[in-house]
Design a binder for these strands. Structure first.
Length: 508
RNA sequence: GAUCCCGUAGCUCAGUGGUAGAGCAUCUGACUUUUAAUCAGAGGGCCGUAGGUUCGAGACCUACCGGGAUCACCA
């Protein structure tokens, strides 16, 4: 019943909804338009709060505000109401003898309705800055009740919330209600916007160009993941929703752009959990003539710029850890970190030796796991959670990175780093593989794995290989998962809390 | 996909085999500086769905639907 009531169809109005329909008709019969077209607002709630002065109340002697009624306190011939706008809340005060026509309709107003009020600002006996109404009008009649949380500050100054709208399912499915009733969650999304705009500004300031490349792709690539498949009717063939941006952005570097980036959704047809949503936002950037060393410096600078603009500081506290973006980020190779956290040198070991190492470390891996899978498991079980402060993990085995350029001095490794913070990966970068012969061999290897039953191996994209053959200049590429970055910087534990509308199973 | 937990009034929840409850919200009345307004009264439920056990099920059993968490999968 809890769920049902919110989704109730129009044929099944409950008593509260029916009453609002009745009020709507009564308002119309009184000649009141419940849905006027515009309202001229002069002030937001926060502007009034910040500009009001007890010494000079006349500064705000004529203001117009608009917003949603969140509480009504009727005192007989006078009424107080709390109005919420995007900036916050402000109280209004209406007296019957001053506004008789409006007051006659005040019983037809409900929590959830929008109203516009003009008047002067004053401070009540209880000390609350309020708008004394000279004029008031209904701006939108609400037909569906919203749950109202009440807040009280107790004797110790702690904020106590009653009847919070806290059912996670309903909050995600009915985010518009969540945003009304739990306005503090707005800050997470405002920060998300700031983070993305800070990133965009940083790139734009460097002269790199934001581009758009296909989301619907005849082949998918650039990552190891299962795709979503869709169908084009007119051309009668299947298309894939992209799993990564990489291959198209590299084509643009081939085409002569020297710095391109894209911030956009990727789609992966895999499990959902606290850190995975089927559609998620990725930023990828490619800069010509640079390598992964250069990119490490850029990423440090970028993270500081984002922290400055979105947080106003360069450190965040997560649990018992204070994570600093101000200190130089640590740089360590993957195999040095294995040595540091397992005491074992895993470099150059074959599959059987790695399996033995995993067993001796109590790392849980399947007996038929590949060498790369074993390394990956040991890393995630023994190393990752130690990487609290920003750490560039460098130089991965070539088998793990089919699009990264061979290391300039280390046999069998590639020039790649991943940035770890608080035990999670936040960025992935290569010096891009631009040797067309090597690239073709690596993707053919992937294709063989795929034919051998490895569904995660990459699909061979012949056009991409031709582009690399035409010539990709030395290039550094970087990807950052935006949702997880927002989680980190806003202290959210679930990806669903940084997405307005997380993917949900459809209602029955 | 696996396991565990959850689903009772608009919201938050109590009720563990015997007449469906509380607070807030809603409605009616009183009240011209209140603020969780207050005071007095009232209405509101296919107890997620469908079977089963029982004299009797909100509660116990089974399946299903939806959600949460953990795991698996996975950049």
């Amino acid at each position: 019943m809890t769920k049902k009531s919110v989704f109730m169809s129009i044929q099944q109005r409950n008593d509260q909804e029916q009453r609002r329909y009745d009020e709507l008709h009564e308002l119309r019969s009184k000649g009141i338009n419940p849905y006027p077209h515009t309202f001229d607002r002069t002030h937001t709630s926060s502007a009034i709060h910040s500009h009001f002065s007890d010494e000079h109340p006349d500064i705000l002697s004529d203001v117009s505000i608009a917003g949603r009624i969140m509480a009504i306190r009727k005192m007989g011939k006078a009424t107080f109401a709390t109005i919420q706008d995007q900036q916050g809340r402000i109280q209004i005060y209406v007296k019957q003898d001053e506004l008789p026509e409006f007051y006659e309709c005040i019983n037809l107003l409900d929590i959830g309705d929008f109203i516009g009020v003009s008047g002067y600002v004053f401070r009540t006996r209880m000390g609350e800055i309020s708008v004394h109404a000279r004029q008031a009008q209904l701006l939108t009649k609400s037909l569906r009740p919203i749950p109202i949380a009440k807040e009280e500050t107790d004797a110790d100054g702690n904020k106590v919330v009653y009847d919070a709208f806290s059912d996670k399912e309903l909050r995600y499915r009915k985010r518009y209600i969540d945003l009304i009733v739990n306005p503090q969650i707005r800050h997470v999304f405002e920060k998300r916007s700031l983070i993305i705009s800070a990133m965009r500004r940083y790139f734009d300031d460097q002269g790199w160009m934001e581009v758009e490349t296909p989301i619907l792709q005849p082949l998918y690539g650039g990552a190891s993941a299962r795709p979503f498949i869709t169908h084009h009717n007119a051309l009668d063939f299947d298309l894939y929703l992209r799993i990564a941006i990489e291959l198209y952005l590299k084509r643009l570097i081939v085409g002569g752009f020297e710095g391109v980036y894209e911030i956009s959704k990727n789609f992966r047809n895999e499990g959902m959990d606290r850190t995975h949503n089927p559609e998620f936002t990725m930023m990828e950037i490619y800069v010509a003539y640079k390598d992964y060393f250069w990119m490490m410096d850029m990423v440090e600078d970028l993270f500081r710029a984002i922290a400055d603009k979105a947080l106003g500081k360069r450190d965040i506290t997560i649990g018992e850890h204070v994570i600093s973006f101000d200190q130089p980020f640590r740089k360590a190779t993957m195999f040095d970190l294995f040595l540091e956290h397992t005491g074992m040198n895993l470099r150059g070991l074959n599959r059987a030796e790695l399996l033995q190492a995993a067993r001796s470390l109590n790392v849980d891996v399947a007996n038929d796991a590949t060498a790369m899978k074993i390394l990956d498991e040991i890393f995630s079980q023994k190393v990752e959670h130690h990487l609290i402060q920003p750490t560039f993990v460098m130089d991965y085995p070539v088998e793990m990175s089919p699009l990264a350029k061979a290391h300039r001095s280390e046999e069998g490794l590639v020039e790649r780093f991943e940035l770890f913070i608080n035990g999670y990966e936040f960025a992935n970068c290569f010096t891009e593989l631009n040797d067309p012969v090597d690239q073709r061999q690596r993707l053919e290897e992937q294709a063989r794995d795929r034919a051998g039953g490895d569904e995660e191996a990459m699909v061979l994209d012949e056009d991409f290989l031709q582009a690399i053959e035409v010539g990709l200049p030395p290039t550094a590429g970087l990807g950052i998962g935006i949702d997880r970055l927002v989680m980190l910087l806003t202290g959210q534990d679930s990806i669903r809390d940084v997405l307005f509308f997380p993917t949900m199973r459809p209602e029955v």
